[in-house]
């Protein structure tokens, strides 16, 4: 016993260092597993509040470029409205839907990013929407130019978003002109370029083709823009991997939309019951 006390006394400096280092390491390791990193995150009350203040300053400086983006988006939306009005005026006989109960599948919640990172291997964003606005983990985050990420943890007012520039990120994506689909990942090299993996070999594609989300997952609706094919990485090997240039500039993200999927639980229930 005396030996033990003597040992602790002699090495107390090193033991204290070891204790703190173990805490730091366990926090680091926890941070790398999805849905566990709740303690050290930029979505809590203090960090969210400070980030919110600073982003409201930088937001003011970016007003001009934000305006042009909004005008661009307005233009697209107006075009869509015109198309819909046209189809209402000129009805085509189509299979009747249940018009009394037109259930929406998706709802968009607007918000803005208050912190953004893109130069690490595991990148996260923070947005100023949380549980109070109906945000839950595993909801899609997009902006007018395309895909951004998936929410992974929300506090009352803020949420943390796992960016597509995160090595843990895996998203179902497909070609716009065919229905062959693959998995969207990131190799942590360039923040403008992501990778599409596991593409069927019979898929035909060329440089410049558009890639969109596949709608096979319950998170992203089908048809959200991702990017264009840059070049073929390893066409000869079994891993069919292509480089994709994102439409979004991930270093410059302001307003975003979070997408709620009302049918998510239903689809997931169906799939789990079916598997059993």
């Amino acid at each position: 016993m005396q030996q033990l006390i003597f040992f602790i006394r002699k090495y107390k400096y090193f033991l204290y260092f070891l204790l703190l280092q173990i805490i730091a390491f366990s926090l680091t390791i926890n941070n790398h597993s999805f849905h566990k990193s709740k303690f050290v995150s930029s979505a809590n009350y203090i960090t969210g509040g400070i980030n919110n203040k600073t982003s409201s300053i930088s937001e003011y400086l970016n007003l001009k470029s934000e305006n042009t983006i909004l005008v661009e988006e307005n233009k697209q939306l107006k075009n869509k409205v015109e198309k819909l009005l046209f189809s209402i005026k000129n009805p085509v006989t189509s299979p009747l839907k249940d018009t009394l109960n037109p259930l929406l599948q998706f709802e968009y919640v607007n918000g803005k990013t208050i912190a953004n990172e893109y130069s690490k291997t595991y990148n996260y964003l923070t947005i100023n929407r949380g549980k109070n606005h109906g945000i839950k983990p595993e909801m899609a985050v997009v902006n007018s130019k395309g895909i951004i990420g998936i929410t992974d943890y929300s506090s009352n007012k803020y949420s943390r978003v796992q960016s597509i520039l995160n090595k843990n990120s895996k998203i179902n994506a497909k070609f716009k002109n065919s229905d062959h689909f693959g998995t969207l990942t990131w190799n942590a090299k360039d923040y403008n370029i992501v990778q599409l993996e596991d593409i069927p070999r019979q898929a035909v594609y060329k440089t410049g083709d558009t890639i969109i989300t596949g709608g096979k997952s319950t998170i992203f609706p089908e048809g959200i823009l991702i990017g264009t094919i840059l070049e073929n990485l390893e066409s000869a090997s079994a891993l069919n991997v292509i480089n994709i240039k994102l439409f979004n500039d991930m270093s410059n993200i302001g307003p975003i939309y979070t997408i709620k999927n009302f049918d998510k639980e239903e689809i997931e229930n169906l799939e789990t019951n079916f598997n059993e």
Partner: peptide
């Protein structure tokens, strides 16, 4: 100090670990 900076950069405990060392 490291831990506070980790809170803002979503990085678990890496700054805490490095600065402690």
């Amino acid at each position: 100090l490291g831990l506070f900076i980790d809170f803002f950069s979503n990085s678990g405990g890496i700054h805490a670990s490095a600065s402690l060392f």
